[in-house]
Design a protein around this nucleic acid. Sequence first.
DNA 1: TTGTAGGCGTTATCAT
DNA 2: ATGATAACGCCTACAA
Lengths: 346, 346
Amino acid sequence: MAEAGPKKVTIFDVAERAGVSIKTVSRVVNNESNVRDATREKVLGAIRELHYKPNAAARELSGKRSRLVGLVYENAQEFSYLKDVLNGTLDACEARGYSLLLCPLALPNPDIAARVREFATQARVEGIVLPAPLGDVPAVTALLQQLRIPVAAIAPKDPQPEEINVSCNDGEATHSLAEVLIEQGHRAIGFIKGHPDHGASAVRFAGYRRALERHGIAFSAALVRQGYFDFDSGKTAASELLDLAEPPSAIVASNDDMAAGVLFEARERGLSVPGDLSVVGFDDTQIASRLWPPLTTVRQPIMQMAETAAGLLIDKLNGEAVQSPDEPFECEVVIRNSTAPVASTT
Amino acid sequence: MAEAGPKKVTIFDVAERAGVSIKTVSRVVNNESNVRDATREKVLGAIRELHYKPNAAARELSGKRSRLVGLVYENAQEFSYLKDVLNGTLDACEARGYSLLLCPLALPNPDIAARVREFATQARVEGIVLPAPLGDVPAVTALLQQLRIPVAAIAPKDPQPEEINVSCNDGEATHSLAEVLIEQGHRAIGFIKGHPDHGASAVRFAGYRRALERHGIAFSAALVRQGYFDFDSGKTAASELLDLAEPPSAIVASNDDMAAGVLFEARERGLSVPGDLSVVGFDDTQIASRLWPPLTTVRQPIMQMAETAAGLLIDKLNGEAVQSPDEPFECEVVIRNSTAPVASTT
DNA sequence: TTGTAGGCGTTATCAT
DNA sequence: ATGATAACGCCTACAA
């Protein structure tokens, strides 16, 4: 049953076994037309019997196709986003016989362009997946366009028409999130923005504002703080918000990590959540359900988005006429225990 | 300055420019001997001027070397371990001109062997990095040995002599961890084991037992529970431990995720940590410092271990006579606020 | 529908 | 120390 395979079986072996020429084998392997069914069967049989696998290097050398896709990503501390991106991209690659090469980037970085160029040329990837926020870094997108390397961007701020791009309705989701707070009677609702370089930050903020507006609540800039999607910035922002003469009774953090910072700050002040302060996050990362109290948050279908993006990218590389999805993916509000009706002040 | 590179510069171009044969260029590129210094300089100059990059596919086709390394890993929920493994491995690869291919595995899985074989042969990796617990899965290690693919295992239970393997002293670290509890007066110390398939589980448990022994504390099997390195199993184990007629005053969880489960369970019961119960984790994952209270835990140099393992692997592939490190890497106890002296019972 | 010849860019062999 | 030439395994013409 088990055999080490010392001898390489080539296209010639298959051709001989099947009694055809190598070109015919090649046609079968590449699913080309103009092969009689009977012939195809014969070849397929020989391939199976011989356990033939086309040599990738020879294929690439001759056919100019590496069957390699690159994932250029920001190598952040918070990894759960990347985990989903990776899994989705890997799935798409595997389903299509492609392999994935990684290119982690430290941001901000003066010579990203050089690194990406090195990666794109040296690693000879045919296409590149660009998860947020990299779809919005001109140094990267411009370079890739110049290099003529097809790109699929996940959740870019302003989608390029020549790129594939997928996104989700996180604006509406933030709107819904703010609404659960409003419906619970909260009126002074703080907001912690995400990193300004991420397209999602502005979108989520807009969702928050729309929710206020829709319910006739006056927007107050004093209740808004700039965060950077990390724990510390969330904690700092919460501290400032809670120091206000009229502190908010609820805080919307633009992601879970910052919400964790808010929770931490509240604990340090002896504030009870959700008794004294309601808190919501965004992303439904693993930490959201492990914190106390478990966070009300929003789940994005990141893995599906990544798989779709990578899948479309590869299909495009294969000459198919692909198109970015018309509709954004749907986010889902996850209600847990970090929110409660506002305490009556009387 | 910036130019799209439509024309491929090949070894012939370099040879012509330098006034030598392609073989000489090849020698220079591959750092072979038997090239006069003056000639070498000329070639190097031509390479630089022309921005010559050897074609990887041609190299592989001709030379049998793919310059590809594989990372076969367990695709678990908890990703922070993999994040460090990935970063370390990537660093080692980049420093040596190798690329990394990923092979996520769902465990347990009946046909891992088939998947790994597919990966190893189809992806034509020269060597494979096997982070725990995969270094201890016979279906995988046996296959790789049969395929003659060099392996570097990170923290395997029983290191194979023909493999490269790196580990850390997490046994001693657990010993130290238990000691901080003992020194705080704790005598009834619960222990939650890790996943039985992970080599680290037994090692850490042994460290705990040695600490008890050293301080003359009787070991009680009643205070030990089997966990699986995940939040839920930690929570369940804590629940059982706290239901005991004589519950422990402290709990050692074999990793942070389980410790988070313990914290959660304590909160649900209205127990204060560390007031009523001290808790320690292991790994110093990101969640450890975001939980309330922040966890006392142990930091492992996983990234360094991974970089060392991958680096040695590649050096070995390049024909160097490498050897696994003699000494295990050092772990570091991180004291935070989840531990306190035991409350006096009088 | 099928086959033949040539080339992709390297490395390896064997001269010189 | 250096160079001509033949693989390496496949794909793209172009025939047949």
